[in-house]
Structures are given as structure tokens and as C-alpha cells.
Write a protein that binds this DNA or RNA. Structure first.
Lengths: 195, 195
DNA sequence: TTGTTTCCATACGGACGAGTATGGTAAAGA
DNA sequence: TCTTTACCATACTCGTCCGTATGGAAACAA
């Protein structure tokens, strides 16, 4: 994203942020298990000697990377849905959010596979709680009473999580296909009552 | 389950089936990554020397274990839903199926976390396809036209997969709680139109 | 009784990844 | 210029897990 001094894409020295960013790329591509310091170092064009200067151990890298991702995602959620006043549009926009921000999205899908892992599980909880709260509020504005809004929000977010699972096992239609559009239309019609 | 010669629970010699069964227990408890031959052997009260007499390698054990699970699950699905004539009851019964058969169910949830892994991914595909076909047929019987039935089946199965994900990250209500019952009622009312 | 099959123990080799120790080099500051 | 700080390379140790080699003991057959 932004750099401090040299403003060059190919600068000679690395900082902790570079490692975190590349770790997230690796997580998105091959999952959190693939984040090994030697392989990651190779990917950055250096050796593990560099890594252990920036971080005390692998776990510290994961922690910072995940925190960085969480902040980015929370801001993203707010920017994406905070401005939409109509609750129905907000919900529809939530579904459509799947396609944009590919890296952030792939990271989340990979993290869902690591719900064991002591650092990931709490993160998944926080993220899902945050998102479900948004959805729940929207259903509340539509006119659901509190209990129903909670259930519908859980149901809505579950369909999203389930879609990610199907995606991982190659049983979800391509995001740019007509089948996907038809499915999305069906989901929206089923879960969001029209005024 | 059934044994051949000694008919005793604590017999001295093991067979391949015993290893497969214990592997499934380990998968259910700690995931497929935890299936290590030495640790598994310790659990069975023997050493790895025994294992490599029954199986050529770890992958072979996984393959047989997964195949054994798949057969059991397919039979289970047929026995559980095959006899119910009313499609609505069949769908409701599908949701309720979550609680029974704890081991088989936990194995599936663990396998969902291993959608990478070359042996697991095809299995997940087959199982989900089988189940979604059942659900799709039920919605067809209710009166959905083919395209809508396909979409609704995918939506229905996604809510199930999403619920498993929430369960893994400790955000699903206990299966014996009132909250769970209320949620199930909501889901059924939302996804299955009443006659 | 003797030999063969079945099942298991022990000991070893090798791959892989985390983490440490230590030395080197370029850039920045005094 | 000289020194310090920041960053990186190399070379190790250590633990874990897969797989192999080989020998031993019980069960069964001849």
C-alpha cells in the first residue's frame, strides 16, 4: 500500500508490514498451514535470518497479520455498508460484497478452515459477531421483532458461510456466471421480504 | 460393531477395520491432521510396527477410513430419509438429523475443515451432491419448478454447512437448548413453504 | 513337534520446519 | 571518517513424523 521513505516498490530493506502482507497472501492462496518462515522468506527473496529479526517467532507473525486483516476488514465493512440507509439495500449489498476485495475475501475463506488454531478461532468469532450484528440491525429496521431478527441474521450469515464452504469444495457457481446471479436472486428473494 | 472369530471386545489381535474406526474417532475429535500413525498406535495400545503390517502407508489408512465413513453415511441418509413420503417432513427430518449419530456427524464437520487435501475434497463433493439431490427432489415434490428447486436445495444445504461452521467457532446454540429449537423453527418456516 | 502365517516391538534413517548463534554489510548519524 | 544501527546470510540444534528393516512371539497347520 503506502511506504515511508523510499516510495519504491522494489526497495532493498523489508519491514514487519511487508512480512505480514505476504503472510496474508500465502494464507489466501494455500491456507494458514502454508505459512512457514523458510518458505515465506524464499518468497520474499531473503532467508529466515531476516524474519527472526522482525519477529520473535512464527506465532507473532500470525498474530500481527491476522490483526492487520481484521482491522482492514472491519473498516471495509463500515465503508461498504455504513452509508446505505435502506436496510434492504444494505442486505443486498452484503451479499454482493462477496466478489469484491478478492484477497481479503480469500483470506477469510482460508481462515474458516482453521477454526481450530487458538489465534484464528477468536478472530472468526469477532468477525462473525460484528457482521451478524449489522445484518440483525438491518432486519430490525425492516420490521422484524428482536428474536426473529436474530434468527434471520444467523440464517443469512450461515448461507454465506455455507457458500464459502461449497466454494472451497468446488461446488459453487462462478461469481460471474448467470447461475450465480440466478442463485443470488433466489437467496435474496427468500431471505429478504419485499416491502 | 461385529467381530469375526473371538467375539470379544478386548481381543488381542487387531485388524484393518479397527484402525479405520479409531482413525475416524481421532478425526472427529481432533481433525484429520491429528491422524498420525505413532499417536494412533499409542491409542490402540500397540506400536507403529503393527500399523505398517495392516496398511502400506498413512494415506492408505485415510482412504479406507474415509470410504468406510462415506458408505456408512450414505446408508444412513437412505435409511433416515428414504422412508418418509411427505417431502416437507423429509426436509424437516433432514434438519433434525444434525443431533443424532454424533460420531458420523463430527467426522463430517472435521472433514469440512480439510477441503484442501486431495482425498477429502472429492469426498466432500460426493457427499454434498448426494444430499443436495435429496433436498432438491423434495422441493420438486412440493411444487418448485426445477431451477427453483436447485437453488432452494443449495440454499438449504448452505445453511446447514454454515451452521457447522458456526458450531466450530463456538457461535452456534447448543443442540438441546431452547434457542436452538427456536432457530430451527425459524429456519424451517423460512425455507419450507407451508402448504 | 515343527514349520508357517499373522501380528507386533524395536531400532534406525531421512525429510521438514522451528528456533538459535553468530558473523557480515550497507546506510545513517556523530 | 568512524561507529552504530538495521537488516540479512549461514550454519547449526532440536523435535516431530513418515517409512523401513528386522527380529520375536503367538496361533495354527502339517
Amino acid at each position: 500500500m503506502a511506504q515511508s521513505a523510499p516510495k519504491k516498490k522494489e526497495r532493498s530493506k523489508l519491514n514487519a508490514g511487508d512480512w505480514e502482507q505476504q503472510a496474508l497472501v500465502l494464507i489466501a492462496e494455500q491456507g494458514i498451514r502454508a505459512v512457514a518462515v523458510e518458505s515465506l522468506a524464499r518468497r520474499m527473496g531473503v532467508t529466515k535470518g531476516s524474519f527472526y529479526w522482525h519477529f520473535p517467532n512464527r506465532d507473532a507473525l500470525l498474530e500481527s497479520s491476522l490483526l492487520r486483516w481484521e482491522k482492514h476488514d472491519a473498516a471495509n465493512l463500515q465503508a461498504s455498508l455504513g452509508a446505505i440507509s435502506d436496510p434492504r439495500d444494505r442486505l443486498r449489498s452484503f451479499f454482493r460484497r462477496t466478489g469484491r476485495e478478492k484477497l481479503t475475501h480469500d483470506v477469510y475463506s482460508s481462515l474458516c478452515m482453521a477454526s481450530d488454531h487458538p489465534k484464528v478461532e477468536p478472530l472468526l468469532e469477532r468477525v462473525a459477531a460484528r457482521r451478524m450484528k449489522h445484518i440483525e440491525a438491518a432486519f430490525g429496521e425492516i420490521g422484524f421483532d428482536p428474536a426473529e431478527a436474530t434468527h434471520r441474521a444467523r440464517l443469512t450469515y450461515s448461507t454465506y458461510l455455507g457458500f464459502l464452504q461449497l466454494q472451497r469444495q468446488h461446488q459453487a457457481p462462478n461469481l460471474s456466471s448467470e447461475e450465480f446471479e440466478a442463485y443470488m436472486t433466489h437467496v435474496i428473494a427468500t431471505l429478504i421480504p419485499d416491502s
